[in-house]
Amino acid sequence: MTSLRPEHADDGKPKCGAQKRQGAPGETCTFVAGWGTDHVGTGHCRLHGGNTRTQRAAARAEKAEAEARRVLATLDVAPVADPFAALSTLAGQVLAWQEAISHIVNKLGDRVRYEGASGAEQLRAEVALYERAMDRTGQILGMIAKLNIEDRMARVTERQADALVSALEAALAAAGVTGTAADEARKAAARHLRAV
């Protein structure tokens, strides 16, 4: 329970920061952020509108962002070694998400709209979520198409095959395999690479 007397943020706690109506120009409230509300530590204090619906929503968003930043700071992030594969994986995840949401929307049938508290017709959140998923899918797939990843991956594969052939040639030469036996070994390697 919050105290009746506002607590000043002089001990390093975040401040309300709202512009004071009285006092010097630019002077801001020094009470603890969110004092007198259910979101102490973020947003404006109760005296400066901290309990309005908009302020409560903004404080929840601020808390969520702070938590996300805290989690992000603890992650052990490694650089992406293969950006093409990472983008392909992301595309797969986005497509899977879109398909999952499409099943939910399909179950709604003709109930994609409802009457809100004000009496106005509203579009269900699931439909908006599906539209965003479709947009995201289009963006990722468009990005992949612009990058021409398939051709690049084919060139990478060709380079790998060339490196394998060179290694095979070196191994055959080192083993003293020449003539027909070397040709047969090359053909067998080529068949295996095509199969893989």
Rank of each mutant, 00 (worst) to 15 (best):
A117Y: 10
A85R: 06
G12C: 04
G119T: 05
I140S: 02
D135N: 09
T52R: 14
E131V: 05
A24L: 14
G12L: 05
S166Y: 15
R69V: 04
V127Y: 06
Q98F: 02
A182I: 03
A145P: 01
G26Y: 12
D10R: 11
L129E: 14
A154D: 14
E121F: 06
E158I: 10
M134G: 08
D135G: 06
F84P: 01
D110P: 09
H48Y: 10
L95T: 07
M153P: 01
E99A: 12
K63V: 00
A128D: 10
V80P: 06
G41K: 05
A33C: 14
E7H: 07
R132I: 11
V156G: 03
A64L: 07
G49W: 03
K13T: 11
D183W: 01
A64Y: 02
I104M: 08
V32T: 01
A66Y: 09
E115T: 13
C29A: 04
T2S: 13
F84C: 05
R124D: 06
Q139W: 07
E115V: 13
T54K: 10
H192W: 12
L193R: 11
I149C: 02
Y114S: 11
L95S: 08
V94L: 03
H39I: 00
A120H: 14
D38N: 13
E65V: 04
V40E: 05
I144F: 05
A81V: 11
R194K: 14
T157H: 13
L123C: 12
A163L: 08
R124W: 00
Q22F: 06
H8N: 14
A117P: 15
G179F: 05
A100W: 03
H192Q: 14
A91V: 01
P14E: 08
L108C: 13
I149M: 07
R21K: 10
A78G: 09
I149S: 02
R56K: 10
T178D: 11
Q139F: 08
G49Y: 01
R70K: 14
R132N: 14
G119Y: 06
E126P: 11
I149L: 09
S166G: 15
P79S: 08
R5P: 00
R69S: 09
A57W: 13
Y130Q: 13
